[in-house]
Write a protein that binds this DNA or RNA. Structure first.
Lengths: 156, 156
DNA sequence: AATATAGGGTTCGGATTCCGAACGCAGTCT
DNA sequence: AGACTGCGTTCGGAATCCGAACCCTATATT
């Protein structure tokens, strides 16, 4: 009832971009996930780190839990049981999406240089995303690819 | 004036994910871009392909033009001069973001299989995104990376 | 026992934003 | 002239956002 209805409509499109966009496509969800990838787990910590309103945060976290991106679980603090939100496997698999956004943001929207640098743990190198053809191994750009109808395309 | 004010606030965060998210993070912008990558260029074609309202489409296209992702230019039809929206270099560089979303969507939200298949033009293989360390060449997952403060991080 | 503090929310009302339908307007076609 | 097309803008109601206030559970303090 609280979830946006428009989102539901868009989500019904048989499009692999529209459906994730309906879930992730708002101004808070992506930064909530970014925060989750930095290790934030508790409601209060999300709230104070992001400055989001409690009601919105509650709704967004709930939606991500429903979608299976986050898991809500109780855990024992030093003193008592609390709740925390952790990325599921499905959530962790969003890492490339966040990295792609970050690379693009660093390139075009960070006039002072990147605010954060990502390092490969151990080796210290910089991880970068590459789009490569899994068959011939060549790098693929936007102009080198074409879209064809796939098995999930049913014309109603 | 028409642009969301909240978006502006989020955009001011010194975060390479928050800033792109403020531009791209709504339910329509990503599908508009997806459509642009399939070759759609004209206002009418976006509108009929997506079912978006004219006012929203107008506002979104304008915002993307202002951001430098699209370029609005007149061109000559067979009969007259029209306007069209084309991806700029900056816009084309969003391809990995869309592909990352699509891969994730295909994996987790396409119960009937992917609606579209992307093929490497010519070779016919499937392009896939890989996050690799540019130094050691190893694949990098969410757990293998860490974030460090970079040059753009100024603590106010 | 009563009060205080903390985490994790929900409720409420006003301000924003969204959206579809209607309208504008310029340039063609008949 | 009148109709049509492409590309928008305007308008008003509906949906969403957000901050402040409230609620509930549980431990800590007086």
């Amino acid at each position: 009832m609280l979830a946006p209805m428009r989102a539901a409509e868009i989500a019904e499109q048989r499009c692999s971009i529209a459906r994730p966009a309906a879930l992730l496509g708002d101004r808070w969800t992506l930064v909530i996930l970014r925060q989750a990838f930095t290790g934030t787990k508790r409601f209060e910590d999300f709230q104070s780190a992001l400055g989001i309103s409690r009601s919105l945060l509650s709704e967004r976290l709930g939606r991500l839990v429903d979608a299976g991106v986050l898991r809500r679980e109780p855990y024992k603090d030093a003193v008592r049981t609390r709740e925390r939100y952790r990325l599921t496997e499905m959530g962790l698999d969003l890492y490339p999406v966040l990295m792609a956004l970050r690379e693009w943001g660093d390139r075009y929207m960070a006039e002072d240089g990147p605010p954060l640098e990502i390092r490969h743990r151990g080796c210290g190198g910089e991880p970068i995303l590459e789009l490569r053809c899994s068959t011939c191994g060549e790098p693929v750009g936007a102009r080198d690819a074409e879209a064809l109808p796939g098995p999930g395309l049913k014309v109603a």
